[in-house]
Amino acid sequence: MRPESLEAFVAAAGVVGNASSLHRSGQRARRVLEEAREELAAAVGADPAEVIFTSGGSEADSIAVLGGWEAGRARGRSRCLVSAVEHPAVGGAVKRGAEVLPVDRDGLVDLEAARAMIDGDVAVVSVVAVNNETGAVQPVGAVLEIAAGAGAWLHSDAVQALGHVPLDFRADGVDLVSLSAHKVGGPVGIGALLARREVSPRPIGLGGGQEREVRSGTQPVALASAFARAASLAVGELEAESTRLRGLRDRISGLAVSLGARLNSLPGGAPHIVNVTFDGVRADDLLFLLDQRGVHASVGSACRAGVHQPSEVLLAMRRSEAEAVQSLRFSLGWTTTVADIDALAAALRESLAVARTAF
């Protein structure tokens, strides 16, 4: 967590009262909550009434996709489309009947396929803003034009976009956007769904409907306050931080290529994610060896931790199963330094040498 976010959390954690209660303590808690809502809204170009606090990005995704789909059924729209490279919180809708928008070898949505598939029967289309495994920045604006022309809602998971690429809810025109605090130095356990005033997804859970009758549960005032502060800082630093992270990302890319790897991330992608394929090694082995040397990398989405299978994102990008299980993701954040990249370089050379003898 960013120090300022932690300070905001500690200060708000001392506020007594349930923000939904009518007594004086509840009113004080409500004031802190609404101040956080206003701060977050200002950071992402939204109206405070468009901010719905959730437990994280996954819940925001679920409400947008499943709740949006259910609301669409009430409008006579029975279909839901999700891209082939979505986070599991969106991609899981395929098991419930959602259809898949294909992507090209770079992991970008096939716009011709989108034009052919999106019609008046589609309730909601979901396309991630920045892919969490490769850092690919999707053509959300182009998909929005197609969806809007058919009267469908467009949802975008912007968890990896916040603080790393420009995000302006009002100007971008997307109907529903998911965010999460911990990607920008905020606390784990809180996120938000941005929903336009005229867009009302159906709730997917029961309760008191505290968040715009869409999401129920006692509002976590301290978490909301910490999230808003982290988001404000991340957005305020975006231009300089993106430049800094892009330099570190490019160093990792160059290092990986010098060690025989192939890049799965586009040069013009998000500045904080690098996905590479190392021939002759199992990514799991390399992950374990790097972990021993103090480097924490990933083999896909953290939400699938402990259940490693070939990356569905890479398979959708027409990589083979062998390539998908030989690929590793490196992520950068506000705490990452040049010294960290130097440490990675030493650890990666050692780990690759060991992993290749074990393959």
Rank of each mutant, 00 (worst) to 15 (best):
A355M: 07
V354L: 12
G300W: 05
G280A: 11
D342E: 15
V10W: 03
V137M: 09
V159F: 00
D175M: 04
R215K: 15
A46W: 01
D157G: 08
R249S: 07
A181W: 02
A46S: 10
A181V: 04
G91E: 08
A297M: 06
A49T: 07
L287D: 03
L328W: 01
A13S: 15
V354R: 04
G260V: 09
V128Q: 07
N132R: 07
L167N: 01
A136T: 15
A161H: 00
V127W: 04
F169K: 02
L111V: 05
V221R: 09
G247P: 01
T337E: 14
G141P: 01
V295K: 07
A358L: 13
G163Q: 04
A339H: 08
G268K: 06
H23M: 04
W69L: 06
N132F: 14
G92Y: 07
L266W: 03
R215C: 13
T335L: 13
A240P: 01
G163K: 05
L259N: 04
A346K: 09
Q219I: 05
V338I: 08
V51D: 02
E99I: 02
V307H: 14
N18Q: 08
D106A: 14
E237A: 13
A13T: 03
I341Y: 04
R37N: 02
N132M: 08
S311W: 13
V90T: 13
R77D: 11
Q138L: 14
A71Y: 08
A261V: 11
G207R: 12
D284Y: 10
A270T: 09
E35H: 05
R293C: 11
A161L: 03
V65Y: 04
G91W: 10
G247K: 13
G205T: 15
L81I: 08
D340F: 04
V125D: 00
V16N: 02
D168F: 04
